[in-house]
């Protein structure tokens, strides 16, 4: 897993609530037997017209947001199916962090296992961030996982509704260390072999 320490990037605004994993990656991309090729399917219902051409109205196709590694979205991001393909689609496209007021549980867990940082910020803050990056797409956002902060360097602009320029976010301390160091769960679990065997023996499993 690619470690996540700090990230400075512009952000792509997706002002939609309840973005489900069928929207992130539709079922027809799930017939793959490998992880590859998911980036092309990211948001495909919205991103492509029915004839397969890019839909110019969808934010992902707008030139000012090309190269953004941070996605800012409405609440309940990632509801629905457990498909990890949704996270692979986001990371393969180039996203490294998603900011939303709330995430679905399975999506949140899947993100952490793939080096995609899900950041929960209050609804008002996310709304301000959406306003800001829609108005000023060049705005840089800095994420520091060690400090658990999202900051807007050099920006204090009351006109845009941004009265703060730094927010802290919560993350499970163990998950934070895994992300910082690029570790997955499997090594940790394999190290528990003695306890697993003892549990099975005690319960006659």
């Amino acid at each position: 897993m690619q470690p996540f320490t700090t990230l400075t990037s512009t952000a792509l605004p997706l002002r939609t609530e309840n973005v489900d994993t069928d929207q992130i990656i539709p079922a027809r991309y799930l017939t793959a037997v490998t992880q590859e090729g998911m980036g092309d399917g990211l948001f495909s219902w919205w991103r492509y017209s029915r004839d397969g051409s890019p839909n110019p109205d969808f934010v992902l196709n707008q030139p000012q947001y090309q190269g953004s590694e941070i996605l800012v979205a409405g609440r309940n991001f990632g509801i629905g199916s457990s498909r990890e393909h949704a996270v692979w689609a986001l990371t393969q496209y180039g996203f490294r962090a998603v900011i939303s007021p709330a995430f679905a549980d399975i999506f949140y867990n899947n993100s952490l296992k793939n080096g995609l940082l899900p950041i929960r910020l209050p609804e008002d803050t996310v709304r301000s961030l959406l306003d800001l990056v829609e108005e000023a797409p060049k705005t840089s956002i800095c994420i520091d996982l060690q400090k658990q902060t999202v900051t807007l360097p050099g920006l204090a602009d009351s006109a845009s509704g941004i009265t703060e320029t730094s927010w802290s976010f919560d993350i499970d301390p163990f998950r934070k260390q895994c992300l910082l160091r690029g570790l997955d769960d499997l090594g940790y679990l394999l190290d528990k072999e003695d306890q697993i065997s003892a549990f099975e023996a005690a319960a006659s499993l």
Binding site: E84, H85, L189
Partner: peptide, 23 residues
């Protein structure tokens, strides 16, 4: 009973265990 992602499917296949925060 709950749904898991493919990484976790691998964890359970290999160790019959999962790392979970208590809901």
């Amino acid at each position: 009973a709950f749904g898991i992602g493919t990484s976790e499917v691998g964890h359970v296949l290999a160790t019959q265990c999962l790392m979970q925060s208590k809901p």
